[in-house]
Write a protein that binds this DNA or RNA. Sequence first.
DNA 1: ATGAAAGCGCTAACAC
DNA 2: GTGTTAGCGCTTTCAT
Lengths: 346, 346
Amino acid sequence: MLVPVTLAHVAQEAGVSPSTVSRILNGTANVTPEKRARVEAVIARLNFKPNPQAQALANGRSLTIGVITPSLNSTFYGEALAGVEAVLNDTPYHPLVISGQWRPEREQEALDVLLLRRVDAVILMGGILDDAILERVAQRVPLVALGRDVRGLSERCVVMDNRLGMRAIVHHLLHLGHRDFAFIGGAERQQDAVERRESAVATLHGAGVTIPNALLESGEYTEDGGREAAGRLLATGLPFTALICANDQMALGARLTLYRHGLRVPEDVSLTGFDDVITSSLMTPPLTTVRQAIYDMGEVAARAALSLLRGEGVSMQVFTPELIVRESTHPPAGVRRAAAPSEVRR
Amino acid sequence: MLVPVTLAHVAQEAGVSPSTVSRILNGTANVTPEKRARVEAVIARLNFKPNPQAQALANGRSLTIGVITPSLNSTFYGEALAGVEAVLNDTPYHPLVISGQWRPEREQEALDVLLLRRVDAVILMGGILDDAILERVAQRVPLVALGRDVRGLSERCVVMDNRLGMRAIVHHLLHLGHRDFAFIGGAERQQDAVERRESAVATLHGAGVTIPNALLESGEYTEDGGREAAGRLLATGLPFTALICANDQMALGARLTLYRHGLRVPEDVSLTGFDDVITSSLMTPPLTTVRQAIYDMGEVAARAALSLLRGEGVSMQVFTPELIVRESTHPPAGVRRAAAPSEVRR
DNA sequence: ATGAAAGCGCTAACAC
DNA sequence: GTGTTAGCGCTTTCAT
């Protein structure tokens, strides 16, 4: 394998023309069984593998699927990536992953690189690039989005119902008897952050509860974002017995701030997250949250990309969130807990 | 950009031959300033970008660096990946990431794919592939390893001094007054797991302390691994005031088990980790651990790969671990804490 | 200094 | 069915 064996070698060795070998490789045409056997024997003996770059140049497909993830070191998107990889593993395709860092320029660059490298399809996770741009890209290359709904491309989007999930959380807390809420949302340039906040506020409103503006905080979808936002909430001096965070990472950060202020979870404050990343079940106490089947969403996105590639259609996938009740939520002090309907405990 | 513009277009438009354009692109030879200017203008106007696949086919370099990571959804290796990506960002190279899942066959496959795709260099993170295999691969393509020391390839390995780090942890605990230890190590097929365990045992031994065999547990380097191992430790009924874990993820899992058993950290049990992943500073209580500058290691690995690519040499990089004392460690009950020398608190 | 021409390894349209 | 012949888009001798 020091001098890589080429298709031409195989052809010569088997006494056939290069095209025949190519045909056998691609199943492009019928070949006499005996010739096929002969060629396949040589391929096996020489351990020949076609050069993907040459194939790409010749037939325009690179066997590569571009993936844009907001961040390579994110538990959440890491799971999705793993799902994508698992699906592509059974195919000749490989993912080419680039991170966008939640910055439009970086995302644009990532997209440019992927197109330049002639990826056969693109999977976009999250991100904040304009819908209009994406729509344009989608005309050049099969595109599927994960975790965001692109206007005009809805049937290519793998999303979860954020509103439904947040509603479940809020109902759970209301059921426990909470009336004094605080909320930490994500940066509102991201669609899901908006949806989660709106849903929380609306659901509470429906129950006759209003969150004071000062207790409606937001920040980056990160541990630090949550930590800092929680600090600002406590600084207001306003009372609350339940703190709703727009994702688990923020909840993790907020939990540290509560700890620093000597507030116990759940005795003093009930805390909730969103996503159910792996660490959430390991927090002390384990976090009540809403599960996004993010690994599965990655798988679905990859399958959708493959379908588009084959020219088949795909249909929108909306994942239903699942409320996961753990120990970070309790009735507020002085309230006896009433069993909530249809909740899952793990 | 619908019909991609090629080098030939540029040549024609500028009234020169393709070779001239190529030369300008690669700085391969001298070209009259005026011609160069003319061509560059056309390149800019047409927004021409050379097709990487064609370049790869023609000159044998793919501008791609293969990265094998044990897992795409790992906080630890995710950080390293981010470091690699950050460095490559300023170069024409791009990472092609494949995960090995801690399984030799998968790693081997990943390696095969990368070589087939003609990556210009390979960065191997962790992994359990035989040193012999890697040595062979290293003859075909520039290879650098991260987080493991490959026999015969030491100068291409970016590692941290595991023994030193573990020694710091143990000394810290000894200093606090602990005498009754338990230990949870990683799977010993991994080098660093062996080093960390040996160092812990040896350092304790040096202080006249022995861990009973039953309190010397091990498991996968994961949250679940730590959770389960801690369960087995507690099941022995043997007393211990300090629990040393071979990495942060295990410590996180162990922490949950302690919580479940009603044991407080650090009042009842002091707990330590290794790596200082992001979540460790957010645990309740924040975890005492040893910092691996894993992001930096990723950067260094990427730079080393680039150096090898240019035919320059590289030299071994050993990172020095840094003890990070947080709130998960305390003197054991009844012992007054003595200030430990040279420790960092954050 | 620059153009012509021959590949890089493969695929595909075209003959036979 | 199968071989011949052009490319795919770029690089790189080899001339001039």
